[in-house]
Computed example of a mutant assay.
Amino acid sequence: MSIAVSADIKPSRLLFVIMAGACLSVALVGSLACLLVPLHLSFAIRSLLGLACLLAAAVALFQVLRSRKTIWLHISATGQIRVVEHLVRGNARAKPQVVKAGVAKLLAGTTIWPGMLFLRLRLESGKTRTIPILADSVSADTFRALSVACRWLISHNTAKTRMLEK
């Protein structure tokens, strides 16, 4: 059985809606902080608390928008993972602009659920990156193939680690 898989992982709309909802909730709490916080605090402290919540929500929403990139993930038959981030500017027929590319290793904290994958990868630069893959990010067949390939990689990495410990 070959585990070779190539997938274009588009940013999940569902994850964006969930994160935007969370940011808006924090912003709502911040705007209501002036009214709902006990009155024994001064108006300046309540205003600062509300402003801090609004600022946190704005920064979180900016980070969510900034991290929305299309990722090309290739898992070879030998288990090597190649990650390429790319942007498509303007026209859909335009050639994608590569932002980052490199080889990665699947880490132990990877989460594989029936409708969601969180791939924890260690890039060749040494940085750890988590790539969320929801069912709306790829086609159903690609999602299934990625899930099987990641399970295979985890089981083989665990077997290698056990052999090295003995």
Rank of each mutant, 00 (worst) to 15 (best):
I18V: 14
A22Y: 10
A22G: 08
C23V: 04
L24Y: 04
S25W: 14
S25T: 13
S25D: 05
A27W: 06
A27S: 09
L28E: 04
V29K: 02
V29E: 03
V29P: 00
G30V: 03
S31P: 10
C34M: 12
L35M: 13
P38K: 07
L39K: 14
L41G: 07
A44R: 14
R46W: 07
S47L: 13
L48K: 10
L49T: 07
L49C: 10
L51Q: 04
L51Y: 01
C53Y: 09
L55H: 04
A56E: 09
V59N: 02
F62M: 13
F62A: 14
Q63K: 09
L65E: 15
R66P: 13
R66N: 13
S67W: 05
S67K: 12
K69N: 13
W72S: 14
L73K: 08
L73G: 10
H74D: 14
I75A: 11
I75V: 15
S76Q: 14
T78Q: 15
G79E: 09
G79W: 07
I81K: 06
V83G: 02
V84K: 12
E85S: 11
L87Y: 09
N91Q: 10
A92G: 05
R93I: 07
A94T: 03
A94V: 01
P96C: 00
P96W: 01
P96N: 00
K100M: 11
A101H: 05
V103I: 14
A104K: 01
A104C: 09
K105G: 05
K105H: 11
L106M: 08
L106K: 06
L106H: 07
L106A: 07
L106D: 05
L107D: 00
L107F: 01
L107H: 01
A108E: 07
A108M: 06
G109A: 08
G109P: 01
T110R: 00
T110N: 01
T111Q: 11
W113I: 13
P114E: 11
G115F: 15
G115N: 14
M116N: 11
L117W: 08
F118H: 07
L119G: 03
R120H: 11
R120M: 04
L123S: 06
E124K: 10
S125N: 12
S125W: 04
G126L: 02
G126S: 03
K127I: 05
T128M: 05
T128L: 08
T130C: 05
I131G: 00
P132N: 02
P132H: 03
I133K: 00
L134Y: 12
A135Q: 11
A135M: 08
A135W: 08
D141G: 13
D141N: 11
F143P: 00
F143G: 01
R144S: 13
A145P: 05
L146F: 04
A149I: 02
L153Y: 02
I154E: 06
I154M: 13
H156W: 12
A159R: 14
T161W: 06
T161Y: 05
R162G: 06
